[in-house]
Design a binder for these strands. Structure first.
Length: 244
DNA sequence: AAAGCCTACAACCGCTCCATG
DNA sequence: ACATGGAGCGGTTGTAGGCTT
């Protein structure tokens, strides 16, 4: 199949976006949405190709994007997710609210790969990974089973506080395990969190489902992974994820 | 002060996937 | 079943700004 040229068409601009272009694109999408990316630039009056517009919007202009440095918790989550998913940046981004695949990819190549190399022998990513669940609580999560045991390592508790529950030997799909600890989030993530927060239930986050109230988290808008980190610690600690 | 190097990150390229006719 | 086009994805590049010498 012959590929249509993208930005090589006469008059189409490439390179960095100007504030004026950003404003035009943002205004247009706010007014009309983006039904057809290819048609959008023409309708909006931009001398860009649709692909360029889409990337600019999804990676930079979207209102739900969280700007700024990655927290340590986010970096740790990326490392763990990369362990499980490899270079599937969009899949990783789907589990980090407010972060884009491009951003995560950049952070990986500029910071984390380096950090991981330095810490090659450290215990950040533990192998083989055993998962234990603490509390042994009934109806704790959905009735999934794990290939091994699940361990929630709590920074606040000594290891003796963690009771081990060895689960059945039924194999759980890797994606299910992943979803259990890093559920995908969408554009409704924060509104869902808030509505569920009010009712004491966090949807889409079964590992914390037994946390009836989010104690001690007093914030008008929880900050992405910091919020998750709080949930993890409230639920018993950061999970050490299994290797698949 | 300036040249060279390094880092971070925005943006592009080319491929694949998927929906549609 | 196949061709086509739009959208999404991961890899790569370009470049601005900071740092070092």
């Amino acid at each position: 199949m012959v590929r249509a040229p993208c930005c090589e068409k006469m008059g189409l601009k490439k390179g960095p976006w100007t504030p004026e272009e950003d404003r035009i694109l943002t205004n247009y999408i706010n007014l009309y949405g983006h039904g057809n990316w290819r048609a959008l630039p023409k309708q909006a009056g931009l001398l860009r190709c649709g692909k360029s517009c889409r990337l600019r919007w999804t990676n930079y202009l979207r209102p739900d994007i969280k700007r700024g440095n990655f927290s340590r918790e986010e970096e740790d989550a990326i490392i763990q997710l990369h362990e499980m998913l490899g270079n599937r940046w969009s899949a990783i981004a789907a589990r980090l609210p407010g972060r884009t695949d491009n951003e995560i990819k950049n952070v990986w190549h500029t910071h984390l790969k380096k950090r991981l190399n330095q810490n090659q022998a450290s215990t950040l990513v533990t192998k083989p990974l055993k998962i234990q669940r603490d509390h042994g609580q009934e109806n704790y999560v959905n009735p999934v089973t794990y290939p091994d045991t699940v361990k929630l390592e709590s920074p606040q508790h000594s290891s003796s506080d963690i009771s081990t529950v060895t689960t059945t030997t039924t194999t759980m799909e890797a994606d299910d395990a992943l979803d259990n600890y890093f559920p995908e989030v969408d554009e409704n993530f924060w509104s869902d969190i808030f509505s569920d927060h009010n009712s004491g239930v966090i949807s889409g986050f079964p590992a914390a489902a037994h946390v009836e109230n989010i104690h001690g988290y007093n914030s008008s808008k929880p900050d992405g992974m910091d919020f998750w980190y709080h949930l993890f610690t409230t639920a018993g600690g950061l999970p050490v994820l299994p290797e698949f």
